[in-house]
Design a protein around this nucleic acid. Structure first.
Lengths: 108, 108
DNA sequence: CAGTTATTTAATGTTTTTGTTAATTAACGA
DNA sequence: TCGTTAATTAACAAAAACATTAAATAACTG
């Protein structure tokens, strides 16, 4: 599995992020169906898919003339694992913020 | 709060990712202390911090001559929220994988 | 086989990103 | 005030990212 920063870099492009969201929401799809994921040409989509594949975010499956792409659950899970590994950091801070806001409202 | 793909793009650079991990692990730090987060010069670090600030990932606080940086918990949390919003997708798939592996081992 | 469909690769140009050194800004301390 | 410390901005160069059109590849279909 590639480095996390490689995964983040791949998702950092708006078109690629849109592709990934569509594949998660609607399930696997051929490259051609992903053309409306951004205002770009077919070759552009093709290369975005290549970046996503290199980052380990999507898989490619061949079906007749079509290449069908799907998101690898492990990729999304690895992002989740990272945020969870820092859970105490952000959760703790947000809890304190929530508490502060609550106390403030009680003073009114 | 900036777009998620902006946050991902910011974390997509290895040096910036290292900076963020250090700030989460060790807490807020002045720019100068972050020099060993990557094999780069002080101006380079300064500009990486600017990118992180624009993406809403870090805050800057002034203390005497120093600029002290810290990670915004909300930024990490927003990534966590995204992965959680797709939890059924990756968790379901991984559960099925786990089950399949388990059944396979039982057949042996 | 010829034509169509689906997708990728090639060639090319533009824009963005990233890094460096040098200069600037600003605050501290003897 | 002068020199030091801390960090940023300026100027510039190199590399990477991203887009397009044209060409290539490959499999289906009449």
């Amino acid at each position: 599995m590639p480095e996390l920063s490689t995964i983040f870099a791949a998702l950092g492009d708006p078109t690629r992020f849109a592709i990934v969201e569509r594949l998660i929401r609607d399930g696997e799809q051929p490259a051609g169906e992903l053309l409306d994921a951004g205002p770009v040409s077919a070759p552009a989509i093709s290369r975005h898919l290549k970046v996503l594949r290199k980052a380990g975010i999507v898989t490619q499956r061949v079906d007749r003339q079509r290449r069908i792409y799907a998101v690898r659950p492990e990729a999304v899970q690895s992002i989740g694992a990272w945020t969870m590994s820092h859970r105490e950091f952000w959760q703790g801070s947000l809890d304190r913020l929530e508490l502060a806001l609550q106390q403030e409202s009680e003073r009114k």
